[in-house]
Amino acid sequence: MSILISMVPATLMVATPIIIAALGGLFSERSGIVNICIEGIMMVGGFAGATVCVLLESDPTFGPYAGWLGLLAGLVVGIIYSLLLAVSTINFKADHTIAGTAINMLAAGITIYLCQIIFGQQRTIAFSKGISKMKKIPLLSDIPIIGQAFTGIYPTIFIALILVLVTWFVVYKTRFGLRLRSCGENPHAAASMGINVYKTRYAAVMISGALAGLAGAIMVLTNGIQYTASSIHGVGFIAIAALIFGKWHPLGTLGAGLFFGFSSALGVYASMIPLLNLIPSEFFSCIPYILTIVALIIFSGKAVGPKASGQIYDAGKR
């Protein structure tokens, strides 16, 4: 029981950036743009978050909020960087996968280059605090026995939970959401009904960039002490896997993200659990990928993903 309780903070810490980045992927894919560069946007967001945090930390007025301003910086820079994807795929009709791959590669280079310029080394300087854990959560921590699980978790998980609800509401309950989904299913039909496909997709990609940038900043400011070239280490792709495993649905991605986080925590605590300690810890690291492949096979017959996702929209083509 005590092991299970210790696994809660570990699970939530890893799940938070996966969930938020996957929601970013959801907006973009629902509008018909495959966003394979979540990883790259997360890098840029993580770099911006760490940099702002380091630079503001010693400031007397902004110092106490440096971590949160870092998150804001990640979000804003994520939007700006995602415009590269929007311009290349929406205006210039580039192949989504190739454009995304290029943007990923650019992110790795540009962030390290900027670190070299700003800090004179290949990584940012270490920040002293970043985002801190909550010692105690009102109400939740007071519950007997399981209340223990809610001590020492990062407040960012609540951002993720709120974003899941907001995403669900926006995608399924608002006019914008309906337009968004129609652009991803059949853009020509949507255009014939007077929807501006370009504008809708632009908005979707920018929201996607905001969420991925925020996720990257959260990851750097909660997991480590500085931004390095390996800070994001593939979590952007795990987020895409969570999106697929969650069937392109906000609640599904929440479940998938929590499950991937749990499997990572299990890898850490397995050595203390009888029977599980016989399995090599690498096994738990590959569970997310194995399950995603299984999910793809199971879903392959049924149409669950947006139909027009990845297709280039050309108003003149039928």
Binding site: S6, M13, N223, H233, A265
Partner: peptide, 22 residues
């Protein structure tokens, strides 16, 4: 004694550290 099976995964490093400190 624990190994992170990685030189880059700081999240895993933090999880393992939390376990050992606990």
């Amino acid at each position: 004694v624990d190994y992170a099976d990685s030189y880059s995964d700081d999240a895993k490093g933090q999880q393992l550290a939390a376990k050992q400190y606990d």
